[in-house]
């Protein structure tokens, strides 16, 4: 039983978002029992908005409601003083050999994968999306044991299947990318408070002060302006597809609903409790409102791609709703900034 004491059995954590889930599960595995998905998301300043100019994804606008892939794990671990190891591989053999060794040492490992060849995903979801994350935590009868945070239960993959998704190609090609906390020491309450405050401040900066007009709260206005033009510029069919793409980025599995806004609301609620500061929990309400507004705008957008709403007036109304959302989020982040939180 000695080995059991040294390396406790891995506990699967289901999460809304894969990277939050991997971060939470790996840190909890190393003894940080306080870690939750909203905390990982907030400490990593996960909330964002960007419409990347001149880029299309799956023939639609490239929009993201969250920060760039990999940032949440990196920032959250750093804030907690946890050193991490990142590794990419040029050879598939070396990539698997390294993983085999870690599995043998009983160390759960985060892996970046593509979903197009991921056999347990439903076909409807299998696009060439390469920023999915899962944990490999063991091997049985030649199959890797897999904890995919978006799933309710764990699953497994053959060596070939895992290698294929670890070496998926295209944008954000993972190149066998693996990552894990190197060692986790004692994390004091003061460190946790500091991580929460830093996470909030960085998120204020990203949403309010990022240069340019395509990202942060101004990015929402940018998309709003674009939507007003889409119907005339692209034609109704393509314009509807573009709206569908926004809804998918905003609501698809992995967002926790409302473009991650509910997840951020949950973070601020927990942050308020950690900082013993009711003002923080109160601002959580603004993000609940924002998430609700995003969802109601999605319902309106659905009216367009279902062919029920076809007029320019409908596009104008959707664009107006986005402006309203921008105001709510801008106001909320300004309030967070004015708190002048300290730790």
């Amino acid at each position: 039983m000695e080995t059991d004491l040294e390396s406790p059995a891995f506990q699967h954590v289901q999460a809304a978002h894969c990277e939050n889930g991997v971060t939470t599960a790996l840190l909890r595995h190393h003894g940080l029992d306080f870690m939750t998905e909203p905390l990982a998301f907030g400490m990593g300043s996960g909330l964002f908005y960007i419409q990347i100019p001149f880029l299309t994804v799956n023939n639609g606008p490239a929009i993201s409601f969250r920060t760039m892939p990999g940032a949440i794990f990196k920032r959250t671990c750093k804030a907690l003083g946890v050193p991490i190891t990142h590794k990419k591989f040029s050879s598939e053999q070396k990539a698997q050999a390294f993983l085999d060794q870690k599995v043998q040492d009983n160390i759960p490992i985060g892996c970046q994968v593509g979903v197009f060849h991921l056999p347990y995903f439903p076909k409807e979801y299998r696009f060439h999306f390469n920023a999915h994350n899962l944990i490999v935590f063991g091997k049985e009868d030649g199959r890797f044991l897999v904890s995919d945070p978006v799933m309710e239960i764990t699953t497994s993959l053959t060596e070939e299947e895992l290698t294929k998704v670890r070496f998926a190609k295209g944008t954000f090609a993972p190149k066998g990318h693996i990552y894990y906390p190197e060692r986790v020491g004692i994390v004091s309450d003061a460190t946790i408070r500091k991580a929460v405050v830093k996470g909030i401040k960085r998120n204020v900066r990203d949403m309010l002060y990022i240069p340019g007009s395509v990202a942060g709260v101004d990015g929402i206005r940018h998309t709003s302006n674009q939507i007003r033009k889409w119907r005339n510029k692209l034609g109704l069919r393509k314009a509807s597809l573009y709206l569908g793409q926004i809804v998918r980025m905003q609501e698809e599995i992995g967002t926790g609903g409302g473009g991650f806004r509910f997840l951020y609301g949950a973070f601020l609620e927990q942050a308020g409790a950690i900082l013993h500061d009711d003002r923080v929990s109160q601002i959580s309400e603004a993000f609940t409102l924002s998430g609700d507004l995003w969802r109601s705008s999605a319902i309106k957008m659905a009216g367009v791609y279902k062919g029920r709403l076809t007029e320019q007036q409908d596009f104008e109304e959707i664009a107006d709703r986005l402006l309203e959302i921008r105001e709510v989020e801008k106001e909320a982040f300004k309030r967070l900034q004015k708190l002048k939180l300290s730790y």
Binding site: Q14, A15, A16, E37, P38, E124, Y125, V150, E152, G244, Q245, V247, R248, E251, E252, I253, G254, G256, G257, F262, L263, G265, A266, E269, S284, T288, R295, A298, I299, M301, A302, Y305, K306
Partner: peptide, 27 residues
């Protein structure tokens, strides 16, 4: 899938969903 939702006490908690027509139609 996991949603973050408000319970009747006004606190956040986790709920599971089978899907949503609005996004199913987008897909």
């Amino acid at each position: 899938e996991v949603y973050y939702v408000k319970n009747d006490k006004g606190q956040y908690e986790v709920a599971l969903s089978r899907g949503w027509d609005v996004k199913k139609e987008a897909l």
